[in-house]
Computed example of a mutant assay.
Amino acid sequence: MAVLLAIAYAAGWVIRFNIIHVEAHLAEVSFNDPIAWTARITQGVLALAYAVSVAYYLKLLAEFVLKPVAVDPAWQPLGANIIVTIIIALMTLLALGGSLRRVEHLAHGTVSIKIGIIAGLLVALGIAWVSSGIVEPLPPVRLSWASIPMLLGLIITVQGFETSRYLGHDYPADLRIRTMRHAQWIASAIYLAFIALLTPFLSRAAMTEGVAGILDIMALIAPALSIFVLAGAVSSQLSAAVADSIGSGGLVNEVSRRKVSVPVAFTLSGALAILVVWLTDPFEVVALSSRAFALFYAMQCVLAIAVSAKRGTGTMAQRIGFAGVGLICLVAVFVGAPAEG
């Protein structure tokens, strides 16, 4: 997890450089400038990544919704796909009716509640550790070269900071850079604390099935919190899916120079998300989403190197660092693998 967070922070470092230097360069060059074209292609890649991530978020949502329900395991994948398809269809209808923004604002209002649920979960894990200690042997370590593709296939789990790159019309560069950095620090602290506090329960965690296995752990540790964790997980996935749907539609509209309207772009994004949902299982969609975002981060590295060289900004060490991050992201694009399967 620490390595994964370090990769994400390195990608965030590149994007923070681009907020200052690439945005300034793009504001001065013509439409047909090669770097401007590269930037537009990068936006197109991000639009596709967001569309795939919608499938990821809603697939997780469906898994959490079905977890407490007594459903035949053989029918659960079909049920999850039907739920996701219905949600995407409803989101598309809301977008066409101009009401999706209101849903997004409502979802953002639950952020404080979700942070509170996360804090409660961490406290419950800490209390359980102090009160019981590690009473079960830890599962054996399974570390091999195959662990690297699995690690790179999980990049989507620490994604989200790149949104700041495209909020320049609403917020100044220094604010976007500062808040992105703080968001990555806070998220990293939560991830590492969760992994550390989960240590006494890793044997039980290893026996859980599906991507919603955290509910099984919480049912053993703090049953009263299970319903809150479920509510937080569902609302979190829904708000992320709505935000990424809007982001994908807006980027397609912008890249096409308004030739593709936002409703049409949103519909295309929804269709792609539905296709991904029906063609992948929950673990495959995680890896596919990770590869899509890794490609976007790699292209951000290309932009950083090109602008740094052309404008004489940054140092040679920084350019080498950009190339290194880009190489890692390209490896993730080609070898990122599902955690199970």
Rank of each mutant, 00 (worst) to 15 (best):
W37E: 11
D174T: 15
L288C: 03
I305R: 10
I19N: 08
G249W: 05
L167V: 06
L251S: 06
L167H: 08
T267Q: 13
A39I: 06
R319L: 06
S30E: 14
G79H: 13
L230E: 09
V264I: 10
W185T: 11
E340S: 14
G312H: 09
L138G: 11
V285P: 02
Q159N: 10
L61E: 05
I148H: 01
S99Q: 14
A337V: 07
T280Y: 03
G116S: 01
A47S: 07
E284W: 04
A243I: 04
Y56L: 12
F283K: 06
V135W: 15
L202F: 09
A205R: 03
R178S: 13
A317P: 00
G160R: 10
A212M: 02
S53P: 07
L152W: 04
F194H: 11
V276W: 01
R178E: 10
V52K: 00
V158M: 03
L238W: 11
L238K: 08
I217D: 01
E28D: 13
P73F: 05
H105V: 10
S236Q: 09
L167Q: 09
I195G: 07
F17G: 08
N18Y: 01
I148L: 12
N81P: 08
V158G: 02
L220E: 15
V260L: 11
R311L: 09
L288T: 02
L225E: 06
F31E: 14
V276I: 04
G210M: 00
T179D: 10
I305Q: 08
D72F: 12
V3S: 14
Y166H: 14
E136M: 09
I227F: 13
G126W: 01
G116F: 02
I15Q: 10
L152A: 07
A233F: 02
A271G: 04
L61G: 07
G270S: 09
G97A: 15
S235A: 03
I190Y: 07
S203I: 12
A292W: 04
V262Q: 06
L197D: 00
A39H: 07
R176L: 03
F64H: 01
R204Q: 14
G79Y: 14
I82E: 10
S147T: 08
P223Q: 04
F64C: 01
L175F: 09
V333L: 11
W145M: 12
R258L: 10
I86K: 15
N253M: 13
G79M: 14
R178M: 13
Y297E: 03
L198N: 11
L58F: 08
A317F: 03
I155G: 01
A317R: 05
S99P: 07
F194R: 12
R40Q: 14
M91I: 00
A10W: 01
A294E: 00
P223V: 05
L268T: 01
A36H: 05
K259D: 09
S226V: 05
Q318F: 02
S290T: 08
R102F: 12
V103Q: 01
A70D: 15
E162M: 00
G98C: 06
N253A: 14
R258P: 04
I227D: 11
A309T: 15
A2H: 09
A193L: 08
G249D: 02
V277T: 06
V29T: 09
A6T: 11
D174A: 15
H105S: 15
T85M: 07
